[in-house]
Amino acid sequence: METALIVIDVQQGFADPVWGARNNPDAEANIEALQNAWRGPLVLVRHDSVEPGSPLRPDQPGNALQPFLDVERADLVFGKSVNSAFHGEVDLDGWLRERGVEDLVLVGIQTNMCVETSTRVAGNLGYRATLALDATYTFDLEDLTADQLYHATEVNLRGGGFARIASTAEVLAGLR
């Protein structure tokens, strides 16, 4: 039984000040540690924004994946223009099932947006999903802080039965 690592929207454009204050400054280091230790399928998903002026538009430098991601080693790299990685330019569900993948570890940006949506859909599709929460981050939104949104995602996914919440260290320990 295979477990895939799904890395969602870890793009240079999220460094743009337009997003505001973020949380979890260790997220990138945790994502990199997971990627470097990973031996199963590695999937890199990129948000190809259709919003005018977005730093994540395909014609903008911010659309590029962050340089620490190993695109050459990845088994699948693709774009999406909606929140769910399962609704992109590739049939991710079909791709995973063809490879016998039943378990997923999800990480990336933004915790409460594309990461949470993709994790919910994974749970709906019957995958055993694990969210490595400390390998995600988000930004302040309206009257909520990034930390509040981050913890709300944790409660939503765990409490709703969509995913197991784990730390990077716990996921890495499970690989040994």
Rank of each mutant, 00 (worst) to 15 (best):
V115M: 03
G53V: 12
I109F: 13
P41A: 13
E72W: 02
N63G: 06
L92N: 05
E116R: 14
E72H: 11
G108E: 02
L42I: 07
G123K: 11
A33P: 04
P41C: 13
P61R: 09
L42D: 09
L76M: 09
V90H: 01
D75Y: 05
L76I: 10
L34M: 09
G94W: 08
L76G: 07
T111V: 08
N63W: 13
D70M: 03
L42V: 07
R46M: 08
V121Y: 09
Q35P: 03
L65T: 03
E28S: 02
L76E: 13
G108H: 01
N24C: 10
A27C: 14
Q60E: 15
V77A: 09
Q110K: 05
Q35F: 00
G100C: 10
L96I: 05
S49P: 08
N24I: 08
R73G: 14
E102F: 00
H47R: 07
N63S: 14
N36R: 15
D93V: 05
A29R: 14
Q60L: 01
A64K: 07
N83I: 01
E102M: 03
R97N: 09
V50T: 15
E116Y: 01
C114M: 07
S81W: 08
L69P: 00
G100K: 00
N23T: 10
C114N: 03
V105E: 06
N83G: 12
N83P: 07
N112K: 00
Q60P: 01
G100L: 05
D26N: 03
A85C: 14
D26F: 00
P52C: 11
S54L: 07
L106K: 01
T111R: 03
R120T: 11
A85E: 01
V90W: 01
D70V: 03
N24Q: 09
N112E: 14
S118C: 06
R73A: 14
V45L: 13
L42H: 11
R39L: 10
V90Q: 00
R57P: 06
E28A: 08
G79F: 03
R22E: 11
P52D: 13
A21D: 13
E102Q: 14
H87I: 07
L69F: 04
K80G: 11
L96C: 03
H47W: 12
V45W: 00
D26R: 12
L65V: 02
P25Q: 10
A27M: 12
V43I: 15
